[in-house]
Design a protein around this nucleic acid. Structure first.
Length: 579
DNA sequence: GCCGTTTTCGGCCCGACTGTTTTCAGTCG
């Protein structure tokens, strides 16, 4: 059973407990456990077998026992008993925005409602207003929220939403009375997908700023507007929240609205132990003669400092050990976009790219790189016009000619010859005979046969890694965000093989791949595997995706020294000849 | 449910906004 599946069941238990009106702290324990499991870099079954489930934070006797049962038998009796008290599918109602567990329990008990359709009908028939705490306006609002839910405003790619968020921040900065504005939330943490967009501004006149933002015209609909907060929807249905605070609370508010939620909770618990309380306005003394005095709030640095910690970059604020690392002075020095000296995956018109070799090379040079690696598809990928021996050799010659031109012109930039070779079902790597030695660097990747079982795909990948014929495994898990799950793969085995054979693993920077993920990249680094961050560009504009690869790397605690394409060319060549 | 340099029992983060209310419950992040 995968970590994702276990986490999903723990979430489900939490939801069921919630609609059963259980102890909120018990519910929180299950939610925390779900988060812990989904953030694990190792397979939970492996942890059960070695260190034991009670070694996981937030796992006591009860959770270890229940999750152990789940791993051993595929079922959790506790979950099944809870679920039996409600009709199947009732939890879907919780996905309607503004409709929570208390309301769900209420309408189910009073009216037997267990589906979105039934809830909608009851609202139309004006039957909900009979219930305590509900009125005509609640029904009206609920119908609207159900319509929104049906339109399905799910998560979107970071690569899609970040430019939108940046535009919104600029728009807010243009509002009269705004002193500073910044994006917050998961976009600022650079999560691979983003739900809604969170914005923060400071002003001496928050109410006027809120009003101005609501009337700015960027929101298709304003769903909530107070004196310090505005929520609304963009034309596409994406939710935007703006929060406005006074300048002295900028850091506190930014910290708070950047999250993650669990990171904040941990900070607050830490504050409590030190006699402080934390809210979005600052850090305050709780007792004695200094009660209520503000000790921090203006900057995030101050906030962390007051809690005895160095600044923690937003990408690390996921409750994955960052506070402990900060306390021990062991935070990584995260890689920056400017550390990248070359891009190691791109396609030209020779296979399925849109641009000629020379234009691709020039575009890389224009981005300040020292080198780039051309990686057109190998012959077996017919659909992408993969290169056979003859065409691959011709490309090598063209690259040599281009490099000679650069050398004559006194330009240090160099183009490296490579290929993105298919890893065949038997694990052999699709390179024409005799060409391995002709190429500077070979990427290996799987493009077919995703549905095979995990053992087989893992064996295929490991065989390729051990063959000595690949230098880097490209998009190792094959996932397409929001579209396709990774193929079944024992990632730890792949990582171990890569470590043992000095093969690098790619963080593919294409916004719908980001593969390896942050979590797997971190695991790979911990096991001593080098990474490549590369764009997989098929047209020139794609070369700019490098930043998303770097963002994912930062979320994976990656430093410049972990990444092969931060090396100067000579050092990178030396790495390539490492065997 | 978990957890422990004051604790193995009694705690467990904090505030904004809405709708239905006369002091608050529910939802959200």
């Amino acid at each position: 059973m995968t970590n994702t599946e276990v986490a999903r069941i723990l979430e489900e238990v939490a939801d069921l407990l919630e609609i059963s009106d259980e102890n909120t702290f018990k519910i929180r324990s299950y939610r925390r456990a779900a988060e812990v499991v989904s953030s694990l870099s190792r397979e939970i079954g492996d942890i059960q077998a070695t260190d034991g489930l009670e070694s996981l934070p937030g796992f006591g006797k009860a959770l270890a026992e229940k999750v152990g049962e789940l791993l051993d038998t595929g079922r959790m009796a506790y979950r099944d008993d809870l679920a039996a008290q409600f009709p199947d599918g009732i939890l879907e109602l919780l996905r309607i925005p503004g409709f929570g567990p208390k309301r769900l329990a209420q309408v189910y008990k009073a009216l037997g409602i267990a589906t979105v359709d039934a809830l909608e009908q009851a609202a139309r028939d004006q039957r909900l207003r009979e219930l305590p705490g509900m009125g005509a306006k609640s029904e009206e609002k609920l119908l609207h929220q159900i319509a929104l839910y049906r339109e399905g405003s799910q998560r979107a790619l970071l690569g899609e939403m970040l430019p939108v968020a940046e535009e919104l921040v600029e728009a807010v900065r243009g509002i009269e009375g705004v002193l500073r504005a910044e994006m917050a939330g998961s976009a600022r943490r650079r999560r691979e997908t983003v739900g809604d967009l969170d914005l923060l501004a400071t002003s001496e006149t928050p109410e006027a700023v809120c009003r101005a933002f609501a009337e700015l015209g960027v929101l298709a609909e304003v769903s909530l507007a107070g004196g310090t907060k505005v929520s609304g929807l963009l034309p596409g249905g994406r939710q935007v929240d703006l929060r406005v605070v006074e300048p002295g609370s900028y850091g506190a508010a930014l910290l708070y609205f950047t999250g993650s939620m669990t990171h904040n909770v941990n900070l607050r618990e830490r504050a409590q132990k030190r006699g402080f309380t934390v809210n979005e306005y600052g850090i305050f003394v709780v007792k004695d003669e200094f009660k209520g005095e503000q000790v921090a709030g203006e900057s995030e640095e101050d906030m962390y400092k007051a809690l005895g910690l160095p600044y923690i970059p937003p990408e690390l604020r996921e409750d994955r050990g960052e506070i402990e690392a900060a306390e021990a002075g062991k935070l990584p020095t995260l890689i920056e976009l400017s550390d990248i000296r070359g891009d190691l995956q791109m396609h030209t018109t020779a296979s399925d790219g849109h641009n000629e070799l020379r234009d691709v090379a020039e575009a890389c040079r224009a981005r300040g790189y020292e080198y780039c690696l051309i990686t057109d598809h190998s012959h077996s990928l017919y659909v992408a016009n993969g290169l056979d021996a003859e065409r691959l050799a011709a490309q090598r010659t063209a690259i040599d000619a281009l490099n000679a031109e650069y050398a004559d012109a006194g330009i240090a930039f160099r183009v490296l010859a490579g290929t993105e070779a298919d890893i065949m079902p038997d694990g052999t790597v699709d390179i024409p005979p005799g060409m391995r030695e002709q190429l500077d660097c070979v990427l290996g990747s799987i493009h077919q046969g995703f549905s095979a079982d995990a053992d087989r795909i893992t064996a295929r990948m490991v065989a390729a890694i051990e063959s000595g014929n690949v230098d880097i495994i490209a998009h190792p898990t094959g996932r397409l965000l929001l579209q396709r799950d990774p193929y079944g793969l024992h990632i730890e085995k792949v990582i171990e093989a890569a470590a043992a054979n000095h093969v690098a693993l790619e963080i593919n920077a294409f916004p719908n791949r980001l593969d390896l993920s942050d979590i797997h990249a971190r695991l790979a680094r911990d096991r001593g595997v080098k990474l490549s961050i590369s764009t997989d560009a098929h047209e020139l504009a794609h070369l700019d995706f490098m930043k998303y690869g770097v963002m994912t790397a930062r979320r994976g605690w990656i430093e410049a020294g972990d990444v092969v394409n931060t090396m100067p060319l000579a050092k990178f060549r030396a790495w390539l000849s490492r065997r």
